[in-house]
């Protein structure tokens, strides 16, 4: 079997006395889409934030592309170029234009040539249908547009792995579709992704595997289709029944 892109072993995380994540074990295969499901407060966001070092954790081992990760600011700074992340709140830098938002990482972090980085940025903007907006400021865009640009900003670093933390949760319903379309295209291009979402229809369509989390425990890891038709645990069944889709 090929080396998985990401492996998480026995990860434990607490804030003071509050234990947030218990013995998390997870494998993400290269080119696959993993959807993280669970009720709110189950620790999904915390887990995804642990995977690019925005949260530290008390114990456990991360392995990325076969390389064990020893957490330190320097290591994370390097790894974050390989692991893109998009947040729930569209978080573009308001002081920069769309293009400068996208180019900040490629030029300043990766020190790439401007012409080449710009060409790629424009190509990516075209793919999400926003090529005309490169000189706009974030405040001039709608939520859905900002979120698509946030995705482009992450992709511009040519990451191997993308983390999506409820990227459609703050959007108006009519904006959601455009953003999901971008994720769908990425999946077709075999981008490895870990997605936290409440869009169940979308999750069913896109997931190669579903990780079901409740109260900080992984209750099951099941292939996508199977999870929605026949989940292994009763808790997951209850969760699915409670969702409206």
């Amino acid at each position: 079997m090929a080396t998985p892109l990401l492996q998480v072993e026995h990860l434990e995380k607490s804030y003071g006395d509050v234990h947030i994540l218990h013995d998390i074990n997870l494998t993400v295969a290269t080119g696959s889409v993993t959807v993280l499901l669970g009720p709110s407060g189950s620790g999904k966001s915390t887990l995804i934030r642990c995977l690019n070092g925005l949260e530290d954790f008390q114990s456990g081992q991360l392995t990325f592309s076969g390389e064990p990760v020893t957490p330190s600011p320097k290591v994370w700074q390097k790894l974050r170029q390989k692991i893109g992340m998009v947040f729930q709140s569209y978080d573009l830098f308001p002081n920069l234009t769309v293009l400068d938002n996208i180019l900040l990482g490629p030029l300043k972090v990766q020190h790439r040539a401007k012409a080449e980085a710009k060409e790629q940025a424009i190509k990516l903007l075209k793919e999400v249908g926003l090529a005309d907006y490169q000189d706009s400021y974030p405040r001039q865009l709608s939520g859905g547009q900002k979120q698509r640009i946030a995705i482009v900003r992450a992709l511009a670093l040519n990451p191997d792995f993308m983390l999506f933390d409820e990227v459609t949760a703050s959007l108006d319903p009519e904006m959601v579709r455009g953003v999901l379309e971008v994720l769908r295209n990425l999946a077709q291009q075999k981008m490895t992704m870990l997605v936290v979402t409440h869009e169940m229809n979308f999750a069913r369509e896109i997931a190669d595997q579903v990780v079901f989390l409740e109260e900080g425990h992984i209750l099951e890891v099941t292939p996508g289709k199977q999870f929605f038709e026949n989940p292994q645990t009763e808790r997951a069944q209850i969760f699915l029944n409670s969702m409206d889709f």
């Binding site: 170029q81 992340m85 830098f93 946030a150 992450a154």
Partner: peptide
């Protein structure tokens, strides 16, 4: 300056210095 701004700067791999230079100081001074 919003925490999420700092985090999204980190997420694209900016160093602490770059984060200050391109995100925190321009926004914070404004």
């Amino acid at each position: 300056v919003a925490k999420i701004q700092v985090e999204s700067g980190l997420a694209i791999g900016l160093s602490r210095w770059q984060l200050a230079r391109y995100v925190v100081f321009p926004q914070g001074l404004t």
